[in-house]
Amino acid sequence: MGDDDVVVVGSGVIGLTTAVVLAERGRRVRVWAKEPAEGTTSAVAGGLWWPYRIEPDDLVGAWSLHTLDVYRELAHDGGRTGVRMVEGVQAQTRLDELGPWAARVPGLRAATPEECAGPALWARLPLIDMPTHLAWLRERLVAAGGVVQERTVGGLGEAFAEAPVVVNCSGIGARTLVPDDDVRPVRGQLVIVENPGVSTWYGRVDATSHEVTYLLPQPGGLILGGTSREGDWSTVPDPVEAADIVRRCARVRPEVAGARVIEHRVGLRPGRSAVRLERETAGGGVLVHNYGHGGAGVTVAWGCAQEAARLATAAS
């Protein structure tokens, strides 16, 4: 075990991105994960960049904007990175309802009535094909000398036995691993259908219920969503909920109603009252927590990774 050794716990988008940043700064990084990235909640995510149900407001803006800048660059090689810049509308949303970050998103503006009825915003935003992006992150990590090891972690002390610095990116697993009772599942269900010709994304959040409505055109099909049920641990798709998702999306794009269903997906977002991104002394070494990103892990991944790496490598 050397001074440059780091163990990152968790192989979702937060863990892999953090590991890449650390490895490219010269650290010897091992990612520990109980399942491959393809089996994580990140692989189920719709993949649209948008600060969605994540706190604290005063930090999320900077994390999101840094991540946006990275994705805009990665979109130049979208076939490999899985990142594309796609036009779309966020319905039932006004600019003055958003934080200061919104003024710094290139091209973000009020939608025209032709683009969307009612108050809405138009933007050309990153839309990430998560299976492709996660595989690319893993390849980039390996190219920087990092290693991904599939193993179940019973406690953070196991990691300190092999590295002086541990970064906890365990997502929903932090509830028992830390343990942290503030971490809770926010269940999301999706339906993937054959795309009948939808080329733009659409999103709408109902703040009064668990329903969210979105259409996200991805290479593997059109993703229809969704739900946001707090405290629900079930990962089994609900057929009634799936039918309701398709009905809601068909009100936006009627051609969706007859589209062939390819797949049903369920993921448990790692909800928390606020992201925990902080450093502490533990296990005789340095422990950095980077979890609790809710439904916006993709949106803040690079900003949080940069801060986590700074905390992990800062002098004591």
Rank of each mutant, 00 (worst) to 15 (best):
V21P: 02
V21T: 03
L22P: 08
A23M: 01
A23C: 05
A23I: 10
E24M: 02
R25S: 09
R25T: 08
G26L: 14
G26S: 14
R27I: 04
R27D: 02
R27S: 07
R28V: 12
V29H: 05
V29A: 09
V29L: 00
R30D: 13
R30K: 10
V31L: 02
V31G: 11
V31E: 08
A33H: 06
K34W: 13
K34R: 15
E35Y: 01
E35P: 06
P36D: 14
P36G: 11
P36I: 04
P36T: 08
P36F: 05
A37I: 09
E38Q: 04
G39H: 06
G39W: 09
G39F: 11
T40I: 13
T41A: 13
T41F: 11
T41H: 11
S42G: 09
S42W: 11
S42Q: 13
S42N: 03
S42Y: 08
A43E: 03
A43C: 00
A43D: 12
V44G: 04
V44F: 04
A45W: 08
A45D: 06
G46I: 08
G46S: 07
G46N: 11
G47E: 00
G47N: 00
L48I: 10
L48M: 10
L48W: 04
L48V: 11
L48K: 00
W49T: 04
W50N: 08
W50L: 15
W50V: 08
P51K: 11
P51R: 08
Y52P: 02
Y52Q: 12
R53I: 12
R53H: 14
R53M: 09
R53W: 00
R53G: 13
R53Q: 15
R53E: 15
I54G: 02
I54D: 03
I54N: 01
E55R: 15
E55W: 04
E55T: 14
E55G: 09
P56H: 12
P56T: 10
P56K: 10
P56I: 13
D57W: 10
D57L: 12
D58W: 06
D58C: 13
D58M: 07
V60Y: 03
V60Q: 05
W63K: 00
W63H: 14
S64M: 02
S64A: 15
S64H: 12
